[in-house]
């Protein structure tokens, strides 16, 4: 990768209780590109986004954004850095006491001195892009999951941030919305030159717009490369994941004792 680097993750270790989530993850997010982070469920992809955003602190290792070590920054500097970032949460995480319009206007109101008329124009443009300009007066409780995520997307890019972290942007979208959103993420990236990190399970859509892909499993980076190279990768893990095959080295089941023994366990030995 010859592009300048926006985010660099070095030797990242993170655990929850006795479970190791990451055991030495290294990755580089190039400036102005869409980088996808993929992997089986439960491998800590959302956790990785939270570590990049400085919401979680690693046990070891560094996350550098534009050369600044996120976890060494004082609280005030961390908040200043976050103004240059946008994050789309899996749940949407809209503010429940504000309507759709005010949710999208929130970053503009707190971080800029723009007049109300200009804020209105920007918010309507962002809502138009996600197809929800007509829903501006609705409260978050009146939105479906997919609509809430689209509003959250509009809010994440309201300030035209330099770095956007997308956590499952396509989940819960109908095929029409999904197609529009895929194009939207791509267009926003191209038009504004922003750097995007995208966690997603939607392989086809993600590979169609990602410039670079990291596949994470077992606490490490299992493979990385451009979508084209991963599509023809011969590694059994990568092949199974990219092509969604049920049989392969990546187990579908969470580790458990033998099914037969479990079912026939005598009473008193149930665990």
């Amino acid at each position: 990768m010859d592009d300048p680097i926006m985010v660099e993750v070095k030797d990242l270790h993170f655990s929850r209780g006795n479970t190791d989530i990451f055991r030495g993850v290294d990755l580089q997010i190039p400036l102005g590109k869409i980088t996808a982070i993929m992997g089986p469920s439960g491998t800590g992809k959302t956790t990785l986004l939270k570590l990049i955003g400085g919401q979680l602190v690693p046990d070891r290792g560094q996350v550098l954004i534009d050369g600044q070590d996120v976890h060494q920054l004082p609280r005030r500097s961390l908040f200043t850095l976050r103004r240059r970032m946008g994050m789309l949460f899996q749940s949407g995480a809209l503010f429940s006491d504000l309507d759709v319009f005010e949710n999208v206007a929130f970053p503009l109101r707190v971080h800029t001195e723009l007049p109300n008329a200009m804020i209105r124009d920007i918010v309507l443009m962002k809502l138009q892009a996600v197809g929800l300009r007509g829903a501006r007066h609705l409260m978050p409780s009146e939105l479906s999951g997919g609509m809430a995520r689209r509003v959250a997307l509009a809010r994440a890019v309201a300030l035209d941030p330099e770095l956007v972290l997308y956590d499952e942007p396509f989940v819960g979208q109908d095929p029409i919305s999904m197609g529009v959103l895929v194009q939207l993420v791509k267009k926003v990236n191209q038009a504004l030159g922003l750097t995007a990190v995208m966690v997603s399970h939607d392989i086809k859509e993600t590979l169609s717009i990602a410039d670079y892909v990291y596949i994470i499993a077992d606490g490490r980076v299992m493979a990385h490369g451009t979508p084209q190279t991963l599509n023809v990768n011969d590694d059994a893990h990568v092949k199974q994941f990219v092509h969604g095959e049920p049989d392969g080295p990546v187990p579908f089941h969470y580790p458990a004792p033998d099914f037969f023994d479990d079912i026939l366990a005598p009473a008193g030995q149930f665990s």
């Binding site: 994050m87 949460f89 929130f106 959250a152």
Partner: peptide, 8 residues
Amino acid sequence: TSMEMIGV
């Protein structure tokens, strides 16, 4: 968390 990520 989302408020923190907005820089507030």
